[in-house]
Amino acid sequence: MAIDENDFSFIKNEKDWDNFLKREKLKDYSKIPVKRAHVNGWVKFAFVFLRIYIVIMLALIVLGFLNII
């Protein structure tokens, strides 16, 4: 798909193009690794709470569905 270069005269050279790509974050992010987060403090507590919440909800829901069936 070709575009009309005259419409994009604000990109005149390599430098403009590189700036455009950088400003618009046009790169393949799947090749850039993401660092794992440090889980500590209140976040650790929140995760424990979340696990307990999920287990309790799952148990109650299994019981509830058994009642329905």
């Binding site: 270069e5 390599e14 193009w17 790509l21 618009e24 046009l26």
Partner: peptide, 20 residues
Amino acid sequence: PFDINKKLEELPVEIRLRAI
């Protein structure tokens, strides 16, 4: 002369369309 279409062709297809 700077060829913007040539530059676009160098990008992977999904990024090329996003760039346009």
